[in-house]
Design a protein around this nucleic acid. Structure first.
Lengths: 211, 211
DNA sequence: TCTTTTTTGTAACATCGGTTACATTTAATT
DNA sequence: AATTAAATGTAACCGATGTTACAAAAAAGA
């Protein structure tokens, strides 16, 4: 485990901290689609992503859903840190976007290390920083841009995260993540196809040229 | 200054920290409407609110605007902390909602105190926590609710923050903060008046009963 | 008082996105 | 191969919100 940790976090943490993490952390592999956290869950550990990607979603009470952002290698979940500290319930849902490996660290360590390791403090602050900015971008997207632009960004980001020009999603799934309806997404995708930006197959969108 | 600090932060910080703050911090009074931070500003200090309220807004490149949340007594600006740490530019605009007093703390201290004072760590984490949740609520508002509901919430919150059942804003100003148009806001306000929830005057909305 | 500016009211219309309905295509299952 | 289920395509329609235009009211200024 110490090797995987070093590959992802070696440049961030000093030796002693890496050592501590490998002693108290538990390694975990989760398959694509695995629901890691649901809204309302109490959270016992803090996840450090080693490989793969996790999508963070907001749900409302009516079952509506909205993709907030992705976590990748070297990221952690600031929302989880929140919940940990305040013993509060999770405000978000986390789902593995692909097969993902992570190290779970007990909550207590988070506070302890903040006093002890400068690199840990930086990591935690940096995480909050990134997450706040990603949330701001999400706000921008839904407040200031139209669905066609949002769809384009979605395809770009998804392709980047999975490192694949083929996107394996149904229109319905995309509609959920963008908090829209299947018909609207099909309509806009068809427009993109007519513009030569993508090709539509069943369960599969082939990216040609998004620019 | 130490007295004002204690009134707002005495229950949060230990004596030694309060002492340090009062030594390195600078007290500042700003009038209602004062623009404290603009997007793109580099930030040199961290504000601790002593009294009054500050509204935090997101601007996009086309001059569109959106109210994110308010800061009150005992709050600090997590966004600012971000910028401080990363030497990055501000992503948000901060405007005094009313006459406001705050203590500005040099950036360097933030990191120093995080190692030294447990109460400071808690305060910083707690701030991030609150801000993340408020941003989530903003996301909920714009993603899941309609303008009439948002307007109602806006009036409620504004009234709460200012502790006043009279709201002194033009329809145009409200439209900016909700990222809508004046005509739409006038329309919806008129509906609320017809429902007996408010009374409309010039430059002034009188809250009767929002429930 | 007269004029100008600011704010508000309102109608008419456009547009985006959501809904309903149904056909068609493709894949999975028997 | 025949049947069923899932995914996609498309038309028609609706509602919320934004836009344009103009009038009326209120305040500010000359």
């Amino acid at each position: 485990m110490i090797q995987e940790l070093k590959a992802s976090y070696g440049h961030l943490f000093e030796e002693a901290l890496l050592e501590e993490i490998s002693q108290v952390g538990t390694f975990k592999d989760v398959p694509a689609g695995y629901k890691i956290i649901e809204i309302g869950n109490y959270i016992k550990g803090m996840p450090l992503l080693v490989s793969g990607a996790i999508k963070i979603l907001r749900d409302d009470s009516d079952g509506d859903e909205l993709l907030l952002y992705y976590l990748e290698k070297g990221d952690t979940c600031s929302m989880t840190m929140n919940c940990c500290m305040g013993q509060a319930k999770s405000q978000i849902k986390a789902v593995a976007e692909m097969d993902t490996s992570l190290v779970m660290v007990p909550v207590i360590k988070m506070e302890e290390w903040a006093a002890k390791y400068k690199s840990w403090r930086h990591f935690v602050f940096e995480s909050y920083h990134k997450r706040l900015n990603e949330l701001l971008q999400t706000v921008d997207a839904i407040a200031f841009t139209k669905m066609d632009e949002r769809l384009l960004s979605f395809l770009e980001e998804k392709s980047r995260i999975t490192n694949n020009l083929s996107i394996y999603n149904t229109h319905q799934e995309i509609a959920y993540e963008l908090h829209s309806s299947r018909v609207v997404i099909s309509r806009l995708l068809k427009k993109l196809e007519n513009l030569g930006k993508i090709e539509l197959k069943r369960n599969h969108i082939q990216i040609i040229n998004l620019k």
